[in-house]
Simulated assay, not measured.
Amino acid sequence: MCEEEKKKKGWFSKAWKNYSNAFFLILIIGVTAIIIFTQVDLVEFQKTLKQTKGEFLLLGIGCVFLYWFLEAYMLLKLMRQENSNEKFSFAFTLTMVGQYYNLLDPSSSGGQPIQLYEMSKKKYGLGTGTAVLVQKYALYQITITFLAIIAIVFCTTELNQSLDAVKWLIAFGLVLNVAAIVFIGILVFNPNAARGILLSCVKILLKLRILKNSEKQCKKIDHFVGEYKLAVEGLKDKKKETLQLFFVSIIQMMAFYSVGYFVYLSLGLNSVNAVTIISLQAILYVAVAFVPTPGAVGGAEAGFLLIFGPIYGAVNAPVAMILWRMITFYFILVFGGVYLSIHSIKMGKEKVNAIGEELSGEVDYLIEENKKKQ
């Protein structure tokens, strides 16, 4: 009996390690759905949903594909700095790996270890792979913050009509994103200062007993700073290419934000212009970017209803929110899962963590080698 209990416990422990994010995601989706549907008139909801114009929703899905293609294009440009013969198909596969696993991970970083693993199979060095992904992330972070700041200028009136809670949510998200950009700048120009800032934050968290094991945390900081230092050297050396990729990144994010506008048109609405809808989407994206759930589930839905509620009205807002999430979250998960299954890249959480630890050790070695050269 004892052996059977151990086997059952072992099976549960293994399943939890592999699928805990998926279980957590399903739970949050279920709770969110219950809250939403208890607050709406189901008869009116069904009536509005039936009147939706499908052609505009297809255009919204088209925006998601454009977003993916531009993501792949940027990865391809960065990889071709090392391998001029790299193919777009591989860059697109890397894109889907990142999209799928980042949505499943609460920190939105679960895709990077597998992306690095796939690049290593194509004979890319760990230094090159890390540089490509960190450079792409830095461009992404700068782009979404830049667009959000411009959007706030365009949408001051609309934001004043929203609830005070939305303003605090937006302010919090924007401050965190601006802080991330400032920190990237410090990493670029003074890595030692960046390390000092991180160590100070860790010391505070250690005193508050939020973090434990100071030696382990210091090693993580050294790894993080060294990783970024290796990556930003490429961006600094190729300023023209970096600027071009920044403009592509702006177009990419504008395409993603445009999904919301096509959802708006699909409901037969036309009183608000595209610039306003896209700007509000840019603000919403930044506001919920740091919600610690897979795909910002819960926060994204609540943020949408708060920000877009005055524009859509009580009847249309829940429908619009569900259609928007179906395209920008669930469609990506389903398409990504099918695509990666076909390409045999689907992995459990335990294997992802193992790959991450293995690659992390190799990157640490590269950082030490870089220090010796200096």
Rank of each mutant, 00 (worst) to 15 (best):
I204K: 13
L116P: 08
M96H: 05
G125E: 14
G348E: 02
A289R: 02
K53G: 10
N190E: 08
V338M: 03
G196A: 15
L280R: 01
A231N: 02
G303Q: 08
Y67C: 00
V352E: 01
I278E: 12
V272T: 13
F24Y: 09
T52K: 03
N177C: 11
E241T: 06
F69D: 01
R195Q: 12
A138P: 03
I250G: 00
L159Q: 02
F246T: 02
E5A: 13
K373L: 02
A302E: 02
M74P: 03
V132C: 02
N190D: 12
W324K: 07
C201I: 12
G260W: 06
Q161D: 08
G299L: 02
T156R: 09
K123D: 13
K14M: 11
G196M: 09
A317L: 11
Q99C: 01
H343L: 03
A320P: 10
K123R: 11
V315L: 08
M347I: 04
F69E: 01
W16P: 03
F65A: 12
V334I: 13
E241D: 14
Y312Q: 04
V288H: 07
F256I: 01
K123A: 11
F335L: 12
D105G: 05
I197P: 13
S89H: 04
T145V: 13
K346F: 04
Q252E: 13
G125S: 15
V286E: 10
I345S: 08
S279N: 09
L94W: 06
V352Q: 00
I170T: 04
P106S: 03
L198P: 06
K7R: 15
A255F: 15
Y101P: 06
G129W: 12
E82R: 13
V263D: 05
K229N: 11
Y330E: 04
K77P: 00
D237W: 01
A320K: 09
L235D: 05
A180H: 03
E301Q: 04
K122M: 03
I142F: 11
I210D: 00
L243F: 15
S108I: 03
T128E: 12
G313V: 02
M119N: 03
K212S: 11
T143S: 11
I342A: 08
G268S: 04
S89C: 01
K216H: 11
I332H: 00
G295M: 04
D222P: 14
Q252V: 07
W11P: 11
A289F: 07
G313E: 03
T145E: 10
M79F: 08
E362L: 05
S360I: 00
K207L: 14
T95R: 00
I184L: 15
G234E: 04
A33N: 08
E301Y: 05
L126D: 09
V352P: 01
V178K: 01
L70Y: 10
F45R: 15
D105N: 15
